[in-house]
Nucleic acid binder design. Structure first.
Length: 299
DNA sequence: CAACAATCACAACTTATCGT
DNA sequence: ACGATAAGTTGTGATTGTTG
């Protein structure tokens, strides 16, 4: 097998025109260099050096190899320095795929902090439904995925999980606003907005409906979390949202949120997911750390 | 003879391949 | 999944052969 160290040996010999001197500068025995050169010549099927009593001289074949060896050594220096840059987070891109709810609060904050620490690393952000986030991760079109109740897939690994109950979000003056918790069946009377079926939220609500033998007719179906938030805030009715989508609105008292009591909604999770077995790029590792911290603060 | 490369025997490691 | 063992690699130092 052709090894980089062979090329290093060859290059040293070509430069010093001497196996002995090359060995000296490489801090190995002369015999070791001699043998590597011989192996290289056997591998290529042609002598690379003419042997002379005072050293060696490149053959025509040797000249050709020397030309590329030099380029390779130079490239190697470059590669090393670029990788050093990457390690020091002086370059690179982090690709993230998230459900829309992640855009409202958590990701802007994490991106702000991350950008402050690593200004030279850029961020690419995609928005999908929970299923779409999983698919994007499986295709390696993103390094990290943020999803709510992501559908299970054997090749996807949840590297962080934060319990995230599903809430009935309403305007502060809504009839249910003060309640400790509500069951889905109690909300039947109110106008309801739901995201479409590609959302983890919708999957959950549908599960509840099924086990509770309910049939809810939403007055609004949308692919926009932002729209659901507005629906609740403007008092149009009840929207179902996980905490991390409405954290800010609750704090500002623009929305009141009542946790859903029905079982599947109680142990829903926000998850950070990655492609199982995939070695993450260094910037993504760093971003993941930040994102994990932010996720833990979601309560 | 001095300078040099080639070769050999052996040690220390690493890698591949088993059988359990 | 595991350790035992064989098979390569890469190293060293001693030695040999060639030649100006």
């Amino acid at each position: 097998m052709f090894h980089l160290s062979h090329l290093r040996y060859f290059y040293a010999v070509a430069q010093t025109r001497s196996i002995r001197k090359a060995a000296e500068s490489l801090h190995v025995a002369q015999s070791a260099v001699s043998r590597q050169i011989k192996n290289l010549e056997e591998e290529l099927g042609v002598p690379l050096f003419d042997r002379h009593p005072r050293g060696v001289r490149l053959t025509d074949a040797g000249q050709i190899l020397a030309k590329y060896a030099q380029q390779t050594m130079l490239n190697l220096d470059r590669i090393r320095s670029e990788i050093d840059d990457l390690r020091a987070l002086r370059r690179g891109t982090v690709k993230i795929c998230t459900v829309e709810a992640g855009l409202i609060d958590i990701l802007p904050q994490v991106i702000r902090d991350f950008r402050r620490r690593y200004p030279a690393v850029s961020v690419t952000l995609l928005t999908r439904g929970s299923q779409g986030v999983v698919d994007t991760i499986l295709n390696d079109d993103a390094d990290l995925g943020l999803a709510f109740n992501a559908p299970y897939h054997p090749d996807v690994e949840a590297v962080a999980t934060q319990p995230q109950r599903l809430y009935a979000a309403v305007a502060p003056d809504h009839a249910i606003a003060g309640k400790k918790q509500v069951k889905l069946s109690e909300l039947k009377a109110y106008p309801i907005a739901l995201p479409d079926t590609s959302f983890g939220i919708r999957q959950l609500v549908d599960q509840i409906q099924q086990s509770a033998q309910l049939r809810i007719e939403p007055v609004l179906t949308t692919d926009s979390i932002q729209m659901l938030v507005s629906f609740a805030r403007l008092g149009l009715g009840v929207a179902f949202l996980p905490f991390f989508a409405i954290k800010g609105e609750i704090r500002n008292e623009r929305i009141a949120a009542v946790p859903l009591a029905d079982h599947p909604a109680r142990n829903a999770n926000a998850e950070i997911i990655v492609h199982k077995g995939r070695q993450l790029p260094i910037p993504a590792e760093e971003f993941l750390d930040e994102l994990k911290k932010a996720l833990r603060l979601l309560k």
